[in-house]
Computed example of a mutant assay.
Amino acid sequence: METIIYMVRHAESPYTEGNERTRGLTLEGKKNAGKITELLKDEGINIIISSPYARAILTVEGLAEALELDIQIFEDLRERHFSDCIITDEEFMPAMKRMFDDPTYALPGGESNTVCQNRSVGVITYILEEYKGKKIVIGTHGNVMTLMMNYFDSTYGWDFLNQTKKPDIYKLFFKDLELKEVKRLWYE
Rank of each mutant, 00 (worst) to 15 (best):
Y6P: 01
M7D: 02
M7W: 09
E12Y: 08
E12S: 09
N19E: 12
G24V: 05
E28K: 15
E28A: 15
G29Y: 05
K31M: 14
N32S: 08
K35C: 06
I36M: 13
E38W: 08
K41A: 12
G44C: 01
G44W: 03
N46S: 13
I47Y: 09
I49A: 06
S51R: 07
P52N: 06
E61K: 09
E65A: 15
E65T: 11
L67K: 15
E68D: 15
L69F: 06
L77C: 08
S83Y: 10
D84A: 10
I86W: 09
I86L: 10
I86N: 13
I87L: 08
E90H: 09
E91M: 12
A95S: 15
A95C: 09
A95K: 03
D102R: 12
T104W: 01
G110V: 08
E111I: 07
N113K: 00
Q117H: 06
N118I: 04
N118W: 00
S120T: 15
V123S: 08
I124Q: 02
I127W: 00
E130D: 13
Y131A: 02
K132N: 11
K134D: 15
K135I: 04
I136L: 04
G139Q: 05
G142F: 08
V144F: 08
T155L: 01
D159V: 01
Q163R: 14
Y170N: 10
K180F: 00
K183R: 14
L185D: 10
W186I: 08
Y187R: 11
Y187M: 12
E188W: 11
